[in-house]
Amino acid sequence: MQEKEVYDYLTAHGVKASVQRVAVMQYLLQQMGHPTVDEIYQALVDHIPTLSKTTVYNTLRLLMEHGVVRMLTIDGKNANFDGVTEPHAHFLCHQCGRIFNIESPSELLAAPPTAPQGFAIETADLYYRGVCPDCLAKQDT
C-alpha cells in the first residue's frame, strides 16, 4: 500500500494518521513476516530519526484498539504483529522461528465453539507449529 492509501485506511478506522503511525502501518502491511516491536523500530528509525520504541509500542497499541493490527504470542516469548486482520491461521516454524500466515478452513475461524455458560468469546487464534519448507529442504540436503 502506498503512503496515501495507508493514511486513508487509518483515517477510515478512526485513527489520526501521524507520520509515525502511517510508517508503522505501512511497514506491517509490506512485511510477509510478523515483526516484533524491536524489528519495526530498527526498520524505521533510519527513516524517522525521532522515532522511539515507546512511540512504536504506543502506535501498535492504538492500532490494535482500532482493529487494524493483531498481536500474536504464538511462541510464548515475543509479541509479534500482523497487519492482516481478516480471519486466518498462523504457522510457527520451530527451527527458524519465522511465522507464516496460512489459510485455514473457514469453519475453524468463523464460528468458535460454544462457550460455557456465562462466557463470551470475543476472539480466537489458531496456531500451528512445525517445520517450514525452507527448513525441511535444509534437512534433506
Rank of each mutant, 00 (worst) to 15 (best):
Q30R: 11
M25Y: 14
P113G: 14
F100S: 09
C96P: 10
V69I: 05
P35Y: 00
T114G: 14
K16G: 05
N101M: 12
D8G: 11
T73R: 01
Q20P: 03
R98K: 15
G83R: 01
A79F: 14
V45A: 04
S104R: 00
C96L: 10
L63G: 05
C93E: 08
P116E: 13
H88Q: 07
Y9E: 15
K77H: 10
F100W: 14
P35S: 01
D8K: 12
H13E: 04
H34M: 09
L28E: 05
G33E: 07
N78M: 07
I48D: 01
S104D: 12
T50Q: 06
A23C: 05
Q26M: 12
A12V: 06
L63Y: 09
E107V: 14
A17V: 08
H66S: 07
L28Q: 08
Y27S: 03
T85E: 05
H34W: 00
A79V: 05
V15R: 10
E5S: 15
F100T: 08
P112K: 05
E5A: 15
G97F: 03
N101K: 10
D75M: 03
Q95I: 05
L62I: 06
G76D: 04
F100E: 13
Y41A: 04
L92M: 01
T114Y: 07
E86G: 07
G67I: 09
E103V: 12
V24H: 07
K16P: 00
L108D: 11
L63W: 09
Q31Y: 07
G76L: 07
Q20F: 00
I74R: 02
S104Y: 10
T36E: 01
P113S: 14
L10I: 12
T55F: 03
I48H: 02
D75V: 06
E86V: 15
E5M: 13
T11D: 10
D75P: 02
T54V: 13
S104Q: 10
R70K: 07
P113E: 14
R70Q: 04
L63S: 06
R70H: 08
T11K: 15
V68A: 08
G76Y: 04
S104W: 05
D8A: 15
K16I: 09
L92N: 04
C96W: 07
Q117W: 11
V69H: 02
H34N: 01
D82P: 02
Q20K: 13
L72F: 02
E103C: 13
L28W: 11
P35Q: 00
G14M: 15
I40A: 02
F81I: 03
G33M: 10
S104L: 12
L60Y: 08
Y41I: 05
H47V: 07
L10C: 09
L92K: 02
T85Q: 11
G76T: 03
D75T: 02
R21Y: 04
E107W: 10
F100H: 12
S52Y: 11
A110T: 15
L62V: 11
G118M: 13
I99T: 09
Y57R: 14
T11G: 00
N78F: 11
I102Q: 08
V22N: 06
V37A: 03
F91R: 02
Q26F: 03
M71W: 00
L63N: 06
